[in-house]
Amino acid sequence: MPDALIESVLPYIGTLKGVTLTGGNLRHAKTIKPDLLVVYRDYRVEHPADFELLGGRGGARQYADRLLAVWTDANVLDVADYFEIMNEWKIPSSWYPRLAEFSICLGEILGNEGISILTGGFFPGMPEPEEFAALYEYFRWADGHPVGAWPDGSPKYHGVSFHLAGFMPPGVTSPGMIPWINDPWIAGRYTFFDQALRLRHGCSLRDFRGPKLATELYWGYGFADEAGVWTTGQLRAGVRETARRLSEDGLVDGFHIWSVGQVANWIDLSPHLPGMLS
């Protein structure tokens, strides 16, 4: 997409996520705004194979090699602050403790390369809060194993990501909007993750030192045929309400609004920029 479009939103954003083929845009944005928090995911590697997840350190090593190959090819290793290592993977409930172990192995392997990861990338409305709480061992481990430091000297930690629906202020509606707008289980699911961690382990999600990021967030499904559902003004209201709610709850450090770019059948919010952010 045009770098000029990215430049037009830089005054209004603190973070930017990109996927495969957007590395050039990310690099351009980071050059202009070095304190921008940049997140990258490469869709050429969506999630581990079952045998990689369940395969102990050898499985994690193989998956790390697959990730490193595409990140190197995309030329983003010196651009992104965080790499999301999987996307919307549905696994059995009993595998979540294994996901914690796997994430520790990956955090160790990639951390040794100076790479910070976001594990999870969970689908909106997933996982079950108890499943999320099974990542506790990863959180504890990550808190004790920073990956270098930020320019201000504070330690940098591995993190976790999930995908959410956005919040809209009461009264902002559209005939075409999805019925689950503002649903606490989809927009506010992080509060249930937090409750499960407190009930099971006596600590809050916010006690975890690494970033908790909503790396995909929209006020709908995010398909192209939803393009006319919200006006620019309504989207601006949604951005502000979401930022207000997330900041007030203090559990999520940032969010990436889905989506900018003309790819496949995904919604392209370019016509609403920079207005929906300003």
Binding site: G14, T15, K17, V19, D207, P211, G254, V260, L269, L277
Partner: peptide, 30 residues
């Protein structure tokens, strides 16, 4: 603040690195 009887501490706020204490607003480039 306490919830379900468990006091929780917040020793790591405020800001660290690029994190401001408020939710960072951003875009997803696809």
């Amino acid at each position: 603040m306490t919830t379900v009887g468990i006091p929780y501490v917040d020793p790591f706020r405020p800001a660290r690195g690029p994190f401001t204490g408020s939710a960072l607003v951003g875009l997803h480039l696809t």
